[in-house]
């Protein structure tokens, strides 16, 4: 078990290193000089050169990578070119929106997918199954930003139950939560559809296994065998999807954040790309990648918790 953990952690460290190099090189390829961007078109060449020196942009690439990576290891994510504030603080601010949004959406997705998947698998090849999977098919096909627009149209514009966008911070939690509901639903529905389909096919596959037949021979009814034996075994593929979905929800909410004018991490990265604020892009993407890897690691741990065969390796 310990060896398994250590090996996973080593792989994670190596991947992070590789990811940081990759991010740095890609961002360096972005055309447009942040210094001239900051000063505008009428800047004097001397001022430009001075600013470039000040930002460290005149140094050779490997040195700049080393300086950036070294600082990050000490918790210094650099200073935004455009806002002149520490990037670490900006990321933390934005996570206060993105993290609750992702968690809310994921919980919602699980809450919808679990009963639907169980229901459909229990009625395999019958009308209920076809109906549930038809709905899931439709859900998978929904672009979340379009769903978001429709939700705004119905619940914000017409019914006026919930705000159409914006976020005023957590100082007043009730309106804060209210402004996250529509975005979370828009994010969760397509994910729930995917999750329900995966859960259903995993359940159907495990229900065909010999040990489920053994369970039936013990005297368990079909639904007891499904819940007590098939579900836990079907959880393994579902966990993988769940991990991938969380990382998607954390970073992939960019477009939804744009629809609802939410000050989340995705929107910050999007704005930073358009403003050529390289240091923000680099650091934020690295944080996201690290988060994805951490989630993957947690999923691996969860595997080991579910499956005794992995605990030994």
């Amino acid at each position: 078990m310990l060896r398994y953990l250590l090996r996973r952690m080593f792989v994670m460290g190596a991947s992070l290193l590789a990811a940081s190099v990759l991010i740095f090189s890609v961002v360096e390829l972005v055309p447009g000089d942040p210094a001239s961007f900051m000063l505008g078109t009428g800047a004097q060449p001397e001022t430009l050169a001075a600013l470039r020196t000040q930002l460290g942009l005149d140094q050779p690439l490997p040195l700049r990578y080393a300086a950036w990576a070294g600082a990050i290891l000490q918790g210094d994510f650099g200073t935004s070119f455009t806002y002149k504030t520490p990037v670490a603080g900006m990321i933390l601010d934005r996570l206060q929106v993105s993290l609750p949004l992702a968690v809310l959406a994921l919980l919602l997705a699980v809450a919808i997918a679990l009963p639907v998947g169980l229901f459909a698998a229990g009625r395999h090849r019958r009308a209920g199954d076809a109906l549930a999977m038809g709905a899931a098919h439709l859900g998978v096909a929904l672009p979340n930003f379009w769903l978001a627009m429709l939700l705004v149209l119905v619940f914000a514009v017409n019914l006026q139950w919930l705000p159409a966008g914006g976020f005023l911070g957590w100082s007043d939690p009730v309106p804060a939560l209210r402004s996250l509901i529509l975005p979370a639903v828009a994010l969760a529905l397509p994910q729930a559809a995917i999750l329900a389909r995966v859960l259903r096919s995993a359940l159907i596959e495990t229900m065909g296994q010999d040990y489920v037949r053994t369970a039936r021979a013990k005297g368990l009814s079909a639904s007891q065998a499904l819940r007590r034996h098939a579900l836990r075994n079907a959880l393994i593929p579902v966990l993988t999807i769940l991990g991938m979905q969380f990382s998607f929800l954390l970073a992939g909410a960019i477009i939804i954040e744009n629809v609802f004018y939410l000050p989340g991490l995705g929107r910050m990265i999007f704005q930073a790309i358009t403003q050529r604020d390289l240091i923000v892009v680099q650091s934020a993407v690295l944080v996201l990648v690290a988060a994805v890897m951490a989630v993957t690691f947690l999923v691996d741990l969860a595997y080991a918790a579910v499956d005794p065969r992995l605990r030994r390796a």
Binding site: D210, R213, T214, N233
Partner: peptide, 13 residues
């Protein structure tokens, strides 16, 4: 009891 003992038992229990 069945033919295949390798798969006849629930691996997680």
């Amino acid at each position: 009891i069945f033919q295949e003992p390798m798969t006849a038992l629930n691996p997680l229990m």
